[in-house]
Design a protein around this nucleic acid. Structure first.
Lengths: 357, 357
DNA sequence: TTGTATGCGTTATCAA
DNA sequence: TTGATAACGCATACAA
């Protein structure tokens, strides 16, 4: 038994194809009685409209595209996993499918846009980052292609402060600030910051949050002394951590989990007593190191970390994009504007890795 | 200026649509002169056949599907990242696109197959695992849907030993065996194995490789004493590692990087002298712990690990699947059968995390 | 070698 | 409210 089509169903039911199409796409244009009859028949026959035929007619593929970047660091790669999963799920729930593609460079990515738009008729794209002067966003805007960015439109703001395209990002500064207040509440005051020395906007943002919170907590005198930059590696975390501890820091906020793993290591090396089992809780004992990204490694090591709500971000991206694709319909259903989501500190107790009693 | 179509190009060129179609799909049926003229015009006009129209006619979407599993452990999640990237790239190179989807359960996955086949007309699927008694593979086979599995068809072999569907996997046993021979060459003999106690086929496979290599190296007497199972966590690796070291193991082969991180930790705890800088190389000093999967964390920590060629696996999966989709054409172009790829040990020197001189 | 006619399954337009 | 007809862009069978 072949698959039912609009035509086969129509003849079987004794109605026109149009009526069936209406029952699906404009139910209010069909008399309730026939509507029910048609819907029941559709259900019974297991009829599903063909996406290809529909796309040919409507010029919409219900298909979103996203470039899969080459695995970089990878420690932070699990973030992408979670994002991708949530994105696929949200898109699916909104009736869209997600198509992946690869590109070697940004220029190549633009070439792929053109291909995918032209050939496969993709309806829009999700970008996972934006650069200072981005050829991709410019191309997309010039061609009127809907898209949304996971990441702030760094340096692409309008005169009025708004961006020229929808975006969703996570407020790194709020995360590091929360880490500071947590540590302050635990009795710490000499709280260091271990950041990247790449000078990128993301790292700047996280450092700024720490600085701001230090000032707000009346700890400004430590700022210049307890701020260190290293490469974003575990080894960098170790050496940076050592320096901070030698400068009497009792707690360290880090720009990444890689750095935090290293910093924790340096603490265990220079302050081993903090890790002896049975030690009473107190300043310097717990959550003395806070990472960023809440990677699985951090969880496994019992490392406190700033957890990014990437699932929320993905959901929001899909809402923005689908809203845009629907042509900005009713004002009532309008989603929030581009948004900064707030991450939160997940507190953990470090694994007791020291010799057992 | 609207996009050129077959028809618009044909009238513009003064040839029939058929000729253009032939120029693209059957160039040998077109006279060289007109072929060049047509191809040049296609190039100049930037014409690209519409996938939707083509799919409607040919009933092939040139689209492969893959379920995105929820992020599990995540330490091993970077493997999936790499696999996904290579898969997308290979598919792209073969003219296919990759569509992602989510499913809550295996039954739900089957429901998605049906939807995606029926609605979007996907040509085939990539599965990233197979279970002992898999509803998904059964459904796909019953419905004649092309698919290929990354993972062995555990317990689904035919009488003649071949599987009923194409698969590609990585030979875990070969990996742990290579780890053993490496350690033996370095002078170790009391080589332990730290595995999972989940009783799954993957873990069994990796343990079997260690056992086999131990026997082959004349070290069978250690097998029963130096074989330990724990949960697949860093904490499990620590406690398991301690036991093995107390039983005089000088080296440890692990079923995962999580376990290896823990085992390395227990070594540093109970055999700290091995990690002092300036120590001469020798048994017990280097590569005394070997992990599995070669995750970024392992790389960052300087942990030796068995690296899986997931990129090769992805490429091979695409070859098998596209070959199947092409209807098993010429014997000459036939790819190798389902295949076990061999992983290899990446040797590293542990980070000097101990106090500096 | 090239051209013609037809159909793939749907939605949009318009008439009934 | 429903039905007939015409596209959407392409490929295939067949005729020239």
């Amino acid at each position: 038994m072949a698959r039912p089509t609009l035509a086969s169903l129509a003849t079987e039911l004794g109605v026109s194809r149009q009526t069936i199409s209406n029952a699906l796409n404009a139910p209010d244009r069909v008399r309730p009685a026939t509507l029910k009859r048609v819907l029941d028949a559709i259900e019974a026959a297991g009829y599903r409209p063909s996406a290809a035929a529909r796309q040919l007619r409507t010029r919409r593929s219900m298909n979103l595209g996203m470039r899969l970047l080459p695995a970089t660091d990878g420690i932070n790669g699990s973030i992408l996993d979670r994002f991708l999963h949530a994105l696929t799920e949200s898109a699916q729930a909104a009736g869209y499918r997600l198509t992946l593609f690869c590109a070697d460079t940004d220029d190549d990515e633009v070439r792929q846009y053109e291909q995918l738009l032209h050939v496969a008729g993709l309806d829009g794209f999700v970008l996972t980052s934006s650069r200072r002067d981005d050829v991709r966003t410019r191309w997309l805007q010039e061609h009127g292609t809907p898209f949304a960015i996971f990441g702030r439109p760094w340096g692409e703001l309008q005169r009025d402060g708004s961006a020229r395209h929808p975006w969703v990002d996570i407020d790194g500064a709020a995360g590091t600030a929360e880490a500071v207040t947590h540590l302050v509440r635990q009795g710490h005051s000499r709280i260091g910051f271990l950041g990247w020395h790449d000078g990128g906007p993301v790292g700047d943002d996280r450092r700024a949050g720490w600085e701001h919170a230090m000032r707000a907590s009346g700890l400004s005198e430590h700022i210049s002394r307890l701020r260190i930059s290293t490469p974003d590696t575990i080894a960098g975390g170790v050496s940076g951590g050592r320096k901070l501890i030698e400068r009497d820091a009792t707690a360290i906020v880090c720009a990444s989990d890689s750095l935090a793993i290293g910093a924790l290591e340096s603490l265990r090396e220079l302050r081993p007593r903090l890790f002896l089992p049975g030690q009473p809780a107190g300043p310097g004992l717990r959550a003395a190191v806070v990472g960023f990204d809440d990677t699985p490694v951090a969880a496994a090591l019992g490392l406190s970390s700033v957890a990014q709500p990437v699932e929320d971000a993905a959901r929001h991206i899909v809402r923005l994009l689908t809203y845009e694709l629907a042509g900005y319909p009713a004002a009532g259903t309008m989603p929030d504007e581009s948004l900064l989501l707030t991450p939160h500190v997940v507190e953990r107790v470090p694994l007791p890795l020291a010799p057992p009693a």
